[in-house]
Design a protein around this nucleic acid. Structure first.
Lengths: 120, 120
DNA sequence: TTGCAAATGCAAATGATTTGCATTTTAACT
DNA sequence: AGTTAAAATGCAAATCATTTGCATTTGCAA
């Protein structure tokens, strides 16, 4: 670990770990005391580089980050924008993909639809 | 169709249709004559709204767009950033997803890895 | 051809993210 | 505990894809 696990960094990691879902830099900035938004961004980048967290690519305006737990996928509710996590067997998944001449390193599944908490 | 299919719009659609892959607004701007970048953006938004094209969510800096052909998925080469299309049986795919209480409307699979055109 | 709505171009605004730099904090070593 | 160099942070400004406001042009129908 070629960096210091400062209080601020611990705070960011704790937030991500405990939230159990994806958070944006702004989300984190609002929930932590005395931390510059720049620091949030810089540390998120660091954590991603160190593979401690993952940058999630959905179609949201802001980049989203999540704590590395187990490999999983995301469902986004088009009504309330809530992000739900789910799993799938990667081996089985890989068998279904009709892809050739490609060395697969990672598979991400993004589902869009509606969760049960419908809005009007 | 509550809009005019102008020459410029036809040009954008033709480009997307013929390219067979994803293009950014900038890509299109560079390949079309006498068209403002703003016009490209506005028409891409229009086409997406009209469901004539799709905005593809990968982790690239620019938004990417593609012509609606058949449902398919994307593989991104982490070496050369090339985007490859492939298909998968949606029904089979859906069976693998361990997701509950969610009304699935769309499944997108994004694969990351390397294609065969390795860079040094 | 006239007129009006839609389409376009241009310039400026927006907003998330990044960068430059001065200041503060950290951790290791006296 | 004091010293010090490197790393971390805060603040302001820059960046850059995308969007917006508005004036001008174009397309289509009466």
């Amino acid at each position: 670990m070629n960096f210091k696990l400062t209080k601020k960094r611990q705070a960011i990691l704790a937030l991500l770990k405990n939230s159990g879902t994806t958070l944006s830099a702004q989300d984190i900035f609002e929930r932590v005391d005395d931390m510059d938004l720049t620091t949030v961004y810089r540390n998120l980048d660091l954590f991603v580089k160190e593979k401690m967290i993952t940058k999630v690519v959905l179609n949201t305006d802001e980049d989203l980050y999540e704590y590395q737990s187990e490999p999983h996928h995301h469902a986004v509710c088009t009504d309330c924008n809530k992000v739900i996590h789910f799993s799938a067997c990667t081996e089985d998944l890989e068998k279904l993909l009709r892809i050739k001449d490609f060395n697969i390193e990672n598979i991400e599944v993004t589902v869009r639809g509606t969760c049960r908490h419908k809005r009007v």
